[in-house]
Design a protein around this nucleic acid. Structure first.
Length: 542
RNA sequence: AGGGGUGUCGCCAAGCGGUAAGGCAACGGAUUUUGAUUCCGUCAUUCGUAGGUUCAAAUCCUGCCACCCCUGCCA
């Protein structure tokens, strides 16, 4: 018996103990009508987490019962995202695999007198459903004979009726306080080409009816979904009971993930993509899995985050800083380090010989157990970041200032002797002298510096376009119309920086630009384009 | 208004009748060739609220309050 870490596992443990279930099976059930986002990551972790923990199974189940919204493009993207997260599903299944079976079960319900073909229009059904206060009215079609229902349902399938002209309804209870039980529609007529079954069908089952059947057919023991389906559970159970499912899958609901600052609504994300406010579903500003991946967030960090936030039924909103902390923690341990400057400032070491250069040792990642170092070129002509030099240093400024000493990371200690100005009075270049006996790892100078700054060598460094991506901000403007405009203008800052010519092992691996933040290499085409993912803790601006 | 849920530190979240875990954030302090990391310390006499049961309640009972979800031929 494994130890439960959340209430779902607790339920599973109890059922295992009582012998109610012997093997555990879950499923991840996206509708292929968009890309997966960080909220799905939570569901993925829960469902696949249970599979792994209980040595069970977890299918990837595409809930494709509404062909008007679904596309193959989305099923492919969804599969890619799940693979990226590192989960492997047992079977790839589709609701559409079971359309024939689902139809047969509907016939069975009709024969049991538990379903009927209704003549009312969608508007009429809605008008007769009643409301929270009043019960609904029964459809005039409700007491049709089994034979007539059977014939009519067959006619529906045969395409003898127009879209919406008839539908199949479960015969439950129009007076139920649970509106989902007021004779819900379980089949509608819809002439839409389905991404998998084409035009084979002109009737499609509704989610509430199809889902319990698909779960059962696949051998799912625990059907995990979000809180808004709690009210649907009686219907889920009704289908299982009327159809005699044994063992009947159990639906368990949990609270969906909310993250401060992240817009999670699928329809809104879709709108942003369609109107071109972002570059696509994989734009780094998007909270989609592919967007987060492009931002540079490692799959492992995302899974760690989902693990750490827990699984409960209470609605909550997790601060984005929690996600960032998980990312920082992972990257601090795994990311390769590189130096780079956002706003390059020329630095010349006046007492270093012209035309000479040397290689200095640089830690790939100071935190790894088996330390790797690499060589970095050092010469008379360098760039540092403008922010690492100050003409009017505030108190406790540790970095470079006139007549001050500072260490160039992994190289020498330097002293600023002079400053060259532009016409407009801005700093053009700083002139320094280095302390030859202060070489990193072999320092006999006896000079202690509080500040250590990064640098790049002028000849070898390459131009890098560095983009700092913001998040899709969720605030009062979220619902407004100015949103897309702001997306384009304020949510990404571009720096024409310079980075050392280090080629990372894998473009998918995020790395850290010293002090500036954790970045991900996006592209190498003469220029390195890196995107910011999370900034480093930055205490020196306080 | 009827039904279904949920309320434990700024944010997540353990706890399941025996006297409030942990993480994030924050704040001190030490180390540091990334002002990062690491380290060490501080951070709920109180569990939405009011009563009740009990030797003992965040945990059981009752009332109240707050928030979320439900009136698609969407999922």
């Amino acid at each position: 018996m494994v130890e439960a870490t959340n209430f779902i596992e607790q339920i599973i443990n109890e059922e295992l103990e009582s012998g109610k279930v012997s093997a555990v099976q879950t499923r991840f059930p996206p509708e292929p009508n968009g890309y997966l986002h960080i909220g799905h990551a939570k569901s993925l972790c829960i469902n696949f987490g249970i599979k792994e923990k209980y040595n069970g199974k977890c299918n990837l189940f595409f809930d494709d019962t509404n062909p008007s919204k679904e596309k193959t493009e989305f099923v492919d993207a969804i599969k890619e995202d799940i693979k990226w997260l590192g989960f492997t599903w047992d079977k790839e299944t589709y609701a559409s695999d079971y359309f024939e079976k689902i139809y047969d079960f509907a016939v069975e319900l009709i024969k049991k007198g538990k379903a009927f073909v209704c003549d009312m229009t969608a508007e009429e059904i809605s008008a007769n459903r009643g409301n929270f206060k009043e019960p609904g009215k029964e459809s005039p079609s409700r007491n049709r004979s089994v034979e007539e229902n059977l014939q009519l349902f067959a006619d529906m399938r045969a395409g003898k009726f127009a879209d919406g002209e008839k539908c199949l309804r479960a015969k439950i209870d129009m007076a139920s306080p649970n509106i989902n039980m007021r004779d819900p529609v379980i089949y509608r007529i819809l002439r839409q080409t389905h991404h998998r079954t084409g035009d084979k069908w002109c009737i499609y089952p509704m989610y509430d009816y199809a889902h319990p059947i698909c779960d059962y057919m696949q051998g799912v023991t625990h059907s995990i979904c979000t809180l808004e389906f709690e009210d649907h559970r009686p219907l889920y159970d009704w289908v299982g009971i009327e159809l005699g499912f044994a063992p009947k899958p159990r639906q368990i609901e949990f609270a969906r993930l909310n993250v401060t600052n992240l817009v999670m609504s699928k329809r809104y994300l879709k709108k942003l993509v369609e109107e071109g406010s972002v570059d696509g579903w994989d734009d780094p500003r998007m909270p989609t899995l592919t967007g987060l991946r492009n931002r540079g967030i490692p799959a492992e960090a995302l899974k760690d985050f989902c693990q750490r936030i827990g699984v409960v039924k209470a609605n909550s909103e997790v601060q984005i800083s929690y996600l960032e902390a998980c990312v920082r923690e992972y990257l601090n341990a795994h990311a390769e380090r590189a130096m780079g400057v956002l706003k390059p400032l020329k630095l010349t070491i006046t007492n270093y010989p012209d035309g000479q250069s040397e290689m200095v040792d640089f830690d790939v990642n100071p935190n790894e157990e088996i330390k790797r170092t690499r060589k970095i070129k050092f010469s008379k002509h360098l760039y540092i970041d403008s922010d690492d030099f100050s003409l009017a240093p505030p108190p406790k400024y540790f970095r470079l200032k006139k007549d001050g000493y500072v260490r160039l990371k992994s190289a020498y200690i330097i002293k600023c002797d002079d400053v060259v100005f532009n016409q407009d009075g801005s700093v053009k270049e700083v002139l320094c002298s280095y302390v030859p006996e202060s070489k990193s790892g072999n320092d006999t100078s006896g000079i202690k510096t509080k500040g250590v700054i990064q640098w790049v060598e002028q000849d070898s460094c390459i131009d890098a376009e560095i983009r700092q991506y913001g998040y899709l901000l969720k605030d009062e403007e979220y619902a407004g119309q100015d949103f897309s405009e702001r997306m384009n203008t304020e949510s990404v800052k571009i720096f024409n920086g310079k980075v050392e010519p280090y080629v990372f092992e894998n473009g998918d691996i995020s790395y850290q630009l010293m002090r500036t933040g954790y970045f991900k290499l996006l592209d190498v085409k003469g220029k390195k384009v890196v995107s910011e993912i999370v900034s480093l803790k930055d205490n020196f601006n306080k």
